[in-house]
């Protein structure tokens, strides 16, 4: 047995979960290798010491701080949803799309008995003076180039887990800025995290959101998945499994699809995931484009 292999088994040896044969092999190696013997002795000391870190006292006002933040979040949420109306988040992008073409869309009024009723709602004037960003690869970075003909607000967020709204409500805000003349802005981005992630770009007045999927820097992969999957989760898995950058322009509710990621080629995985969703894919400039 080599030293490296023995080290990989230190935890299991110390926890006494190694099978008989393997345990004997590691112990024999430790008997014959003084360096590993010393390493293992120090390893055990550290292992046992970590658990002995003293308990800590929470701040006296922790409960109050938590509940104050929760109440603030509840208030914000209430402010975001006008009284009497329950905006269905899945309709958010359909609503924006309707605004662009100048038609009325609907809200849902909550009735006294808890049911809802569709009612017409006036829409804002259309804004079409901006475009979605162009996504490209450059020297190990991914760039998002924004162009707008008028002052336009752009928003970059990352991650999140609840895809009932795009970008997800729990996505981290990276940048929010107003694009002014010269009306072209290139933002470089790199995923320094260990897992695959998704960056969301929202451009004011554009009824679609750009989702850029970036593979992680470490090999923390997903387990192979077979069966039903949401489009975003599916693309994250493909991005991670095949280490590809994916630029997806998405609108409306996120479709549910199917995937069988075990051993599938990139092409097969994408074909299967997008089948029946209304989206297609092509590859250009080293980026998978989904439209």
């Amino acid at each position: 047995m080599k030293c490296q292999k023995a080290k990989e088994l230190f935890s299991e040896l110390h926890e006494q979960t190694l099978s008989g044969g393997l345990k004997q092999t590691v112990e024999r190696h430790l008997f014959e290798c003084p360096v590993c013997q010393e390493d293992y002795r120090a390893f055990k000391v550290v292992y046992d010491q970590i658990g002995s870190l003293p308990s800590v006292q929470e701040p006296e006002d922790l409960h109050e701080r938590i509940m104050r933040r929760v109440d603030r979040a509840a208030w914000d949420r209430k402010q975001a949803a006008p009284a009497g109306f329950l905006w269905l988040r899945s309709l958010a992008f359909a609503g924006v799309a309707a605004a662009v073409v100048g038609v009325a869309y609907v809200g849902y009024k909550q009735l006294a008995d808890g049911t809802t009723q569709a009612v017409p709602v006036p829409v804002p004037a259309p804004v079409t003076q901006a475009e979605l960003p162009v996504v490209a690869r450059a020297n190990g970075w991914v760039t998002l180039q924004f162009t707008a003909r008028e002052s336009t607000e752009i928003l970059l967020r990352e991650g999140g887990s609840d895809y009932s709204a795009l970008p997800p409500e729990d996505a981290l805000q990276l940048q929010k800025r107003t694009l002014e003349p010269p009306k072209r802005l290139t933002i470089p981005h790199k995923n320094e995290g260990p897992r695959a992630t998704v960056v969301w770009a929202v451009v004011e007045g554009v009824p679609k959101v750009t989702a850029v999927f970036l593979p992680g820097a470490a090999d923390i992969g997903f387990e192979p998945w077979e069966g039903e999957v949401g489009l975003i989760e599916g693309l994250l898995r493909i991005c991670d499994e095949h280490s590809v950058i994916i630029d997806a322009q998405l609108a409306g509710a996120v479709p549910v699809s199917r995937m069988d990621s075990a051993g599938a080629s990139l092409q097969d995985a994408l074909d299967r995931l997008l089948d029946g969703t209304g989206y297609t894919w092509e590859e250009s400039g080293g980026v998978i484009r989904i439209r």
């Binding site: 929470e58 701040p59 922790l62 701080r65 938590i66 933040r69 929760v70 979040a73 509840a74 949420r77 609840d162 009932s164 409500e169 729990d170």
Partner: peptide, 17 residues
């Protein structure tokens, strides 16, 4: 303390799901 409070805010926001 901030991290703990932020986590419980997320619990509140997402507990319905």
């Amino acid at each position: 303390a901030d991290l703990t409070a932020e986590a419980f805010v997320r619990v509140f926001m997402k507990i319905g799901r």
